[in-house]
Amino acid sequence: MEPFTYRRASSTEDALATHGSATRGAKFLGGGTNLVDLMRLGVETPSELVDVSRLECSIDAGEDGGLRIGAGVRNSELAADRRVRSRYPALAQALLAGASGQLRNLATTGGNLLQRTRCPYFQDVTKPCNKREPGSGCPAREGEHRNLAIVGHSEHCVATHPSDMAVALAAFDAVVHTSRRAIPLVDFHRLPEDEPWRDTVLEPDELIVAVEVPPLAVAARSTYRKVRERASFAFALVSVAAAYDGNDIRIAFGGLAHKPWRAFAAEEAIRSGASFRDAAEAELEQAKPLRDNAYKVELAARTLVRALEELS
């Protein structure tokens, strides 16, 4: 671990000013459940940590009936919120499907969105990885990639985004509010293309302050299904956040791509009267599985069909 300094920000302005004055890559610190691990591994080497975990910590009702979730709201608090549980049940389920109780007590809403991939090559500084060390190569393409991406990957990176929460937020048309703008969540995370080191569209001196979940009637009938070989405390092989009331529909996948994968094609197919299976296949047509992860195509299709059947 590289030596670093730590400072707790008193406001968003203070956080941005401190961040801007750091000599070598400052990082905003939320719960630290991912960043501190990566610092221990030498993957992240910030000179300064700016603690923003105490700045925006409330869940407020929006004027339009949605929710405004402060970036510092802990995952466990968000999962327990009565409004979330009744109006956006898939979001509560997704949060509870992630990590462990201890980690959820620390992990923040903003930090959760900024988790780095759990691709094992990314986490080992002795191995090549274009995301960690641009130009060093992507050994996962030819190596171990059973749990990696089947859609939206590039020759430079086949990593997946690990968040469960973000999958539900993607389905629910959430908007990320930063210190300077509002970004739809589905546009917040990037595909790797030829810049896999950029996970999101966030600029270096831009800070997430809140996530807004708009009012969405269909979200009250939603579910989150996470598939994994271990019953708890494991990242998704495939996950599905789905909201369906026989009329309106929202679908997003996790574990398939570099970002939470909003399934617009599947939604469109269902609106046009396709069967659940056909809708799943319409979405997964674009899948380009690697040597050892073709199973994810079938698994994703079956998991989606199952989720929609349960909501029907």
Binding site: R118, P120, P139, G143, R230, S232, F233
Partner: peptide, 25 residues
């Protein structure tokens, strides 16, 4: 523990990747 033949390395090297049963299992 998965093996990368090209790098000559174990791929998994922590308990987040090398899964052992948890209580829920």
């Amino acid at each position: 523990t998965r093996v990368d033949g090209r790098l000559g390395a174990f791929v998994d090297q922590d308990l987040a990747m090398y899964h052992v049963p948890v209580n829920a299992d």
